[in-house]
Computed example of a mutant assay.
Amino acid sequence: MAKGRVDAQARQGYALIAPPFLYTLLVLAAPLLTLLIYSFFFFKVGYGDLATGFTLENYRQIWADPIFRAIMQRSLWVSGLVTVVTVVLAFPIAYYVSFVVKPERKALWLFLITIPFWTSYLIRVFLWKVILEQNGVVNSVLLGTGITDQPLIMLRTVGAIVATLAHAYAPFAILPIFVALERIDRSLLEAGRDLGESRLMTFWRVTLPLAMPGVIAAALIVFIPTVGDYVTPELVGGGRIPMVANFIQVQMLGLDNRPLGSAMSVSAMLAVAVVSAIFLLLNRRFLKVRT
C-alpha cells in the first residue's frame, strides 16, 4: 500500500512538472538544437541555398577570421565592463533598501525599482539616445551652464553603450543582491561589532562575503544577456561599434548565410559559457561549490 501511494505521488509530481518541462523544451531546447544543426550545414555561395551534410568548415572559417575574433573580444569586454558598472551601482542601492529602509517600506522601494520594466526595452534605448545626442539633455545642460562651449560627442561610443545597458539591467542586479542581503543574520553583524570591529571592517569581513552569492548571481544575470545584445549597439552605438549579435544579424538576414550565422551563435554561446564557468570557479569559495 505504501509503495502504491509513493508511485501515485510520483506520477502526480511528473504530471505537474510535465507542462513547464515541455514548454521549456519547446521554446529553449528546440531553437538551440536548430542552430546547432544549421551550423554544420553547407552554404552554396552565389545561390543562397543550403545543402545538408556534416562539415566543420563554418567553425574553421569564423575562428580563422580576425574580424570575428576582434568583435567577440569586444563583446566580452563591453559586457564585462557593463557588469562591473551595474553591480557596483546596484550594490549600494540594495544595501540601502535592506539595511536602512524600514521593513514596512521595503515593498514600496522594490516596487519603485521595477518601474523601468513597465516600458519597452526599445523605448528606454531610444530615450538614452535622446539624452546623449548632440542636442540632447546632457549637452543642453552643459552648454546652458557654460561648462562647455561645444556639444560633446557621446553617442556612438563605448561609454554610451555601457551607460544604456547598465541602466537597462540595473533592476536585474539589484534584486538578487537585495535577496542575499536580506538572508544575512543581523546577529552576526552585531557580534562583529561587539568584538571590536568597526562598521567598515564588519562590512568587509561579514556582510560582503555573505552577500557574494547574490553579487555573483547579479553579475551572471547581467553579463550573459548583454554579450548578445543587438539593439543598443545598433541604436546608441550607431552601428559603428558592432558586437557579436550585430555580426550574426548580418550573416543571418543580410547575407542569408544561416549556417555561418548559426556557427557564430553557437561559438558565442560557448565563449560566454566558458567565461561564466571560469568566473564561478574563481568565486567557488563564496558559493561553497566543491570541485
Rank of each mutant, 00 (worst) to 15 (best):
T232P: 02
L152W: 15
I177E: 10
G144Q: 09
D194W: 05
P176M: 04
Y169F: 15
G239D: 05
T202E: 05
V227S: 10
P171E: 06
L189W: 00
S198H: 12
P233H: 02
L152K: 08
I221E: 02
R199W: 12
V222K: 13
A163N: 08
E182W: 06
I153S: 14
Q150K: 15
S187H: 05
L208Q: 03
I184D: 13
P209H: 09
L181T: 07
E197A: 14
A180L: 09
R186T: 11
F172G: 03
D229C: 08
M201D: 07
R156S: 10
H167E: 11
E182V: 02
E182N: 14
V162E: 01
V162P: 02
L188M: 12
R205D: 08
R240N: 10
A170T: 12
A166C: 03
I224V: 15
V179L: 12
D185K: 09
A245F: 09
A173P: 09
A191F: 02
L210C: 09
M154W: 13
T148E: 11
R240V: 10
G144A: 14
E190C: 01
L175R: 06
G239R: 06
V236K: 05
V179E: 03
L143Q: 10
T164F: 01
I174C: 08
F223K: 11
G239F: 00
T232A: 04
L143G: 07
A218P: 07
V231R: 00
L155N: 00
L200P: 00
L165S: 11
M154V: 05
Y230S: 04
E182P: 04
I216L: 12
F203Y: 10
G146F: 14
L165A: 12
I221S: 11
P213F: 04
I221N: 10
D194F: 00
T148G: 10
R199D: 10
G238C: 02
T164H: 03
R193E: 14
S198G: 14
N246P: 11
I153G: 08
A166N: 08
G238E: 03
T202S: 14
L152N: 02
A218V: 11
T232I: 07
L210K: 10
P233Q: 01
V231T: 13
M154T: 00
P209Y: 03
T232H: 07
T207A: 06
S187Q: 13
L188D: 07
V158E: 14
T164R: 02
I221D: 07
L189M: 14
A180M: 07
E190I: 07
G228W: 13
L220R: 09
L165E: 15
V227Q: 07
I216E: 06
A211L: 11
T226V: 05
P233D: 06
M154D: 00
N246H: 01
L175I: 15
D185Q: 14
F223H: 05
P225D: 13
A245R: 03
I224E: 08
I216R: 12
A211Y: 06
V244E: 01
A163V: 15
Y169P: 00
L235A: 01
G239W: 01
A211F: 10
H167P: 00
P242M: 08
H167L: 03
M201G: 00
L189Q: 06
M154K: 00
G214P: 13
I177F: 02
L152I: 12
D149C: 04
I177L: 08
E197R: 08
E197Q: 13
